[in-house]
């Protein structure tokens, strides 16, 4: 555990909590892509199956349970409790275009051809693109609430910090995992355009709106 890894995890946790609180406090999930949230729930479910097979640390187990619990709570709020506020018309990204290629890729390129390992690989690949329905939704409506942009910033920052974590681990532990690194780079790059808008607009007190 190094400082990048820890702050990365906390940034990820902050993103998840920010989104849950935003929906809960405003009693609305307007502007939030339910599809991205379903994909994240799928990511956590397929990655953390090792909860049943191996124990790493209390920290590890607790964080996994919190991530999974929050992911399903978010999906529940969007598709059940506050379903009336869900903007399905603008959430029109075709997720099969992500899940099918990612599924194929995880069968083809993995560390070990075993069910748990393939599911882990699937979750890594899927996480790298799971935010696309959300970004697509924002590009479609042309705007995002400021609290939603804070959520996205924390979520992007988390993977960027993991990149530094991997650089650290490579130098000090001689450890690297090519699948996680490549997917992590892809995931971080997808946020770059958003990071630019966040810094130039949101941090200067303006609402994030795209030119028509």
């Amino acid at each position: 555990m190094n400082i990048f890894r820890l702050t990365g995890d906390l940034s990820h946790l902050a993103a998840i909590i920010i989104l849950l609180l935003k929906i809960w406090k405003s009693r609305s999930c307007a502007g939030i892509s339910g599809k991205s949230q379903i994909l994240f729930a799928l990511v956590f479910t397929t990655r953390y199956l090792d909860l049943f097979t191996s124990f790493i640390s209390l920290y590890n187990t607790c964080m996994k349970l919190i991530y999974i619990g929050c992911a399903y709570a978010t999906v529940y709020l969007i598709y059940a409790k506050f379903r009336a506020t869900y903007d399905g018309n603008h959430d029109s990204f075709r997720v099969e275009f992500l899940v099918v290629p990612v599924g194929g890729l995880s069968v083809l390129i993995n560390h070990d051809f075993s069910p748990l390992e393939i599911l882990w690989t699937f979750s890594i690949y899927l996480e790298s693109v799971a935010i696309l329905p959300q970004l697509f939704m924002i590009s479609k409506t042309g705007e995002a609430e400021t609290i939603t942009t804070h959520y996205l910033f924390c979520l992007g920052l988390y993977r960027a910090l993991y990149l530094f974590n991997w650089i650290w681990r490579f130098y000090f532990e001689g450890f690297f995992d090519m699948i996680a690194i490549v997917a992590g780079v892809v995931q971080t790059v997808l946020y770059c355009d958003f990071f630019y808008l966040y810094v130039t607009k949101v941090l200067k007190g303006k609402k994030l709106s795209l030119p028509a």
């Binding site: 890894r5 995890d9 990820h12 090792d50 191996s54 790493i56 640390s57 590890n60 964080m63 996994k64 991530y67 560390h111 070990d112 390992e117 882990w120 993991y162 974590n165 532990e173 450890f175 690297f176 995992d177 090519m178 996680a180």
Partner: peptide, 10 residues
Amino acid sequence: CHRTNVKDEL
């Protein structure tokens, strides 16, 4: 690859 190490990440 050090696969067992990666599982300690989230």
